[in-house]
Design a protein around this nucleic acid. Structure first.
Lengths: 207, 207
DNA sequence: CATTCCGCTCAACAGGCGTTGACTCAACGA
DNA sequence: TCGTTGAGTCAACGCCTGTTGAGCGGAATG
């Protein structure tokens, strides 16, 4: 029955982790302003002063909590880009990491979160634009990103009834043509011609 | 140059209007939590206590400030619906009313704003669904609404560089095929080929 | 005129916030 | 075994917040 006490370093690591987890949850649930140091400390079963001691300030705690490792992947053609986006959706619909939810929840009201959001979205737009053909690739990539943002906000944060209990494959199925319309180089031209999803572009591969 | 003093009723009306305008601006700029009664009062050049006296509480001030008159219009076919949405975009891109921006800015962090947002979006989804053909009209209408929400958030609130200085007609032009893909009854089907797992339960969606 | 009404201000309250410095005590290194 | 280190607590500070009640002064009313 003898419980050997944890080594100090390990104990510290665990406590810090607990605080970070609690912070992520709280930030994701109520956003930056409504989440309090005391609330995080209570959830982590720790004294508020310890949170300060470890992270310095609420602002730094937030930055540590929402820090996200950028995805390195990169599809080469428009088709792959759309599927990658929809795949992101699948992940998003299930259990989008708390850190991302925390950032999204706060991005409209907390300036620092807005900066983070612009960086993350900008990065995604970069990757999308690189794989999107056409002259206005960057604008189209931004719109695709915002489409996903809107759906995620509506589903995960606003929790609209219309999306509750809808399987992600269904959402992906409905979104796919819309995203293709934004990704394809014929976007903005009137329909009546089938782009053909088989092998994609034969020319026009500018970066 | 004799300045006749304003009648009491008129004076009251103007002051109340000034407070409401200031509240709308501040809520739209920084959201519910960061906007303070004192801040609103300062912007309206009025004592904070007067704001309380006129509106009772910060919460009621917010509700009065974001109260929006629902649009009565209603297009009958999918084409018209898309154009109506894009028209909304044109308005949005220019000078979306401060009240709407205030609601959007706060909807992710302020519970009451979230309720308002769900009501407004739900209303729009209703109107869209009524004019959208197909079984899953309501879901598709929700996605169309969220597409617009995402674009508006990215442009008006996040102020992404990629959308800055882009004329609204350009955005509408790029968005049109995407929205049509969501509105059309053939949405979600693969042109020329059937993936096989597509149409599972497309009957009996409630309305 | 006198009196009531009311738009408006002033000063203050209570409570919650982020943050701090002094403190306790168990794990550590010599 | 000792002093040192550092994880964790405690009580408090100053500030800002929403909110309140008393009060001032000019318009309304007779």
């Amino acid at each position: 029955m003898s419980e050997r006490p944890l080594p100090r370093a390990e104990r510290r690591r665990r406590t810090e982790g607990r605080i970070l987890d609690a912070a992520r949850s709280l930030f994701a649930e109520v956003g930056y302003e409504r989440a309090t140091i005391r609330g995080v400390a209570r959830a982590a079963e720790v004294d508020p002063a310890l949170v300060m001691q470890y992270f310095g300030s609420k602002q730094e705690l937030f930055q540590r909590a929402v820090r996200v490792t950028p995805v390195a992947a990169g599809e080469r053609d428009a088709e792959g880009v759309v599927e990658e986006l929809l795949g992101t959706l699948s992940v998003k619909m299930g259990e989008l990491p708390q850190s991302s939810l925390a950032m999204m929840r706060s991005m409209l009201t907390h300036p620092e979160a807005a900066v983070s959001a612009r960086e993350v979205l900008g990065g995604q737009i970069d990757r999308l634009a690189a794989a999107t053909p056409g002259a206005d690739a960057r604008l189209r990539a931004a719109l695709m990103t915002l489409v996903m943002l809107g759906v995620t906000v509506g589903h995960q944060l606003l929790e609209l009834d219309e999306l509750r209990d809808v399987p992600r494959e269904e959402i992906a199925r409905l979104l796919r043509p819309a995203l293709r319309a934004l990704a394809g180089q014929d976007a903005g031209q009137d329909p009546g011609q089938d782009p053909g999803q088989g092998s994609g572009q034969d020319a026009g591969q500018d970066g």
